[in-house]
Design a protein around this nucleic acid. Sequence first.
DNA 1: TCAATAGTTCAATGGGAATTGAACTAAGGA
DNA 2: TCCTTAGTTCAATTCCCATTGAACTATTGA
Lengths: 121, 121
Amino acid sequence: MSRILPHPTREQIELPGVMDCLSDPIRLAIVYNLAKREKEAGELRCGDFYGLSGKSNLAYHFAKLREAGLMETRAVGTARLMKLRREDLDNRFPGLLDAVLASAERDAERLQLPVLEFTEA
Amino acid sequence: MSRILPHPTREQIELPGVMDCLSDPIRLAIVYNLAKREKEAGELRCGDFYGLSGKSNLAYHFAKLREAGLMETRAVGTARLMKLRREDLDNRFPGLLDAVLASAERDAERLQLPVLEFTEA
DNA sequence: TCAATAGTTCAATGGGAATTGAACTAAGGA
DNA sequence: TCCTTAGTTCAATTCCCATTGAACTATTGA
């Protein structure tokens, strides 16, 4: 299962790709929860998101988020640890991520954004 | 042709709908050009955007932008005058539009965002 | 070595989005 | 009144996206 996980460089991250990622409810929920844990562990595993959808569908969305440059994935054992590419995104699109996250937080109920329970690292 | 053009109220504007609008290259180009003219006339007509795509396809994208709450349309004679719903968007999603527009401006070449010639009001 | 766990990949499906051209409607000018 | 211009609506097509389950791969632990 140890495959090369392709990540775009900072400069390769494109605005439309990022916007597209954030327009999907499942992907927004993933980013939202990753951001919520940014100050603590920072990294989360696929299994933490099983509340959102099925395994294979999540793998699909994770790939999209990774390929669009929104998050970084590293393999540790059988697990995948993922975190937001906060610095790259802030550098590339200043203020964008914060604005989206703040709006998402404000609209969390309306958007039915789930706050997931996470396993401890 | 004078039909009721439904606009969402400020409160009805949803984040995913806005993000989805801005992830499409044609719609981003429309918003980008509307913003560029914000300080001057503020309002633009359908015909100003014929450089982007065909008439009927533009009508489709205009409807999406209007229904998502990104712009406002009013009929004047046979023309449709459109402008950004800047205040509503800034109120609902503070900093979002500015962040997107600033990033779009920075990446204008890469995104091939066309700066259109506009007719004078 | 074997079984269990974590996650990926594949193929198939359904549905919705974008695009196009043609037909249509409304308003303005000659 | 008639023609032209501006823009919408409709139907048809194409394509892409999200979702699903099953099969597969890799790693860990017993």
